[in-house]
């Protein structure tokens, strides 16, 4: 699969700046309903999100904690699945125009398979979505997807349990950035950051040339500011989703997170 320079510029890499960490904001597609989630996407963009990770609601969210799992359940009840999520991303991106932050779909594997990997990749590409994160598709199991997903940045995850060999493999197969899971366990807010997180990121960096973004268990401005000192990106999910019913609150919260990212290395 050839990649070329224009892929990189158009892809998720655009969300990263050399002098500070990128703020990656996770939102659940279709939660609490289509219109509100569209408004929340715009609110996150206005608030200063550098990349938006759009969650696709799925019935067995193995990697997600209670906040995101519950939002997924509600969004599914509102009729949302992969198809609707792609349409939502497309609508957001076309409304927000060329300055919109790049969007990655956070999507479990089976909905992609159900749509057909090739057709799913094509729909996602056509919607203008820059990449995908598939939490239950480790790099060793990704060949069928990667063979049809050219032009999309497929982001793989590393975890504190990953061996050096696996970190290297993730670094080689990932595009856009590498998603570093801060702690063992599922997504969700935690009172404290995992200890030795900075060391973990350093360890990942020694195997990975791409930007390293940290997620899982990162919530408020203080934690975001701390992670932004040593990582290339910070993902905030559950803490945003919890506010997703009120787009104005999302905007205010993302603005605070964005300030924290900007202040971290000044």
């Amino acid at each position: 699969m050839a990649s070329n320079a224009s892929d990189c510029v158009a892809g998720l890499a655009r969300g990263f700046a050399p002098d500070r960490a990128a703020l990656i904001v996770y939102l659940m597609a279709g939660y609490p309903d289509k219109e509100t989630s569209l408004a929340a996407l715009h609110a996150a963009a206005r608030g200063g999100a550098d990349i938006i990770e759009l969650g696709v609601p799925y019935g067995d969210p193995l990697a997600d904690g209670p906040t995101i799992a519950e939002a997924a359940r509600a969004a599914r009840e509102a009729g949302f699945g992969l198809r609707e999520s792609i349409r939502l991303a497309e609508e957001f991106l076309s409304e927000a125009g060329p300055d919109a932050p790049p969007v990655a779909l956070m999507n479990y594997l089976n909905p992609l398979m159900r749509m057909g990997l090739e057709q799913a990749a094509e729909s996602i590409r056509n919607a203008g979505v820059a990449g995908v994160i598939v939490p239950d598709m480790p790099p060793d199991s990704a060949a069928p997807w990667l063979s049809v997903a050219s032009g999309l940045d497929t982001v793989f995850l590393v975890a504190p349990t990953s061996t050096p060999e696996r970190m290297q493999k993730v670094g080689e197969r990932s595009k856009g950035f590498v998603y570093c899971v801060s702690t063992t366990g599922v997504t969700g807010e935690r009172a404290q950051l995992a200890k030795d997180l900075a060391e973990l990121v350093d360890r990942v960096r020694s195997f990975v040339a791409l930007p390293v973004a940290v997620g899982f268990g990162v919530s408020g401005p203080a934690q975001v500011g701390e992670v932004a000192r040593f990582a290339d990106g910070v993902v905030v999910g559950s803490a945003v989703v919890r506010r997703q019913g009120d787009p104005a609150e999302v905007e205010g919260f993302v603005r605070e997170l964005s300030s924290a990212v900007r202040a971290a290395r000044s």
């Binding site: 193995l62 990697a63 594997l109 939490p135 239950d136 598709m137 480790p138 060793d140 199991s141 793989f156 995850l157 590393v158 975890a159 504190p160 349990t161 990953s162 061996t163 696996r166 993730v170 899971v181 063992t184 366990g185």
Partner: peptide
């Protein structure tokens, strides 16, 4: 060696448990 019976089986789990 990857645990596939024909096309079925495999390992489709979060990275955290792949090493385990």
């Amino acid at each position: 060696a990857q645990g596939f019976f024909g096309p079925y089986g495999g390992t489709f789990v979060p990275e955290t448990v792949v090493p385990a």
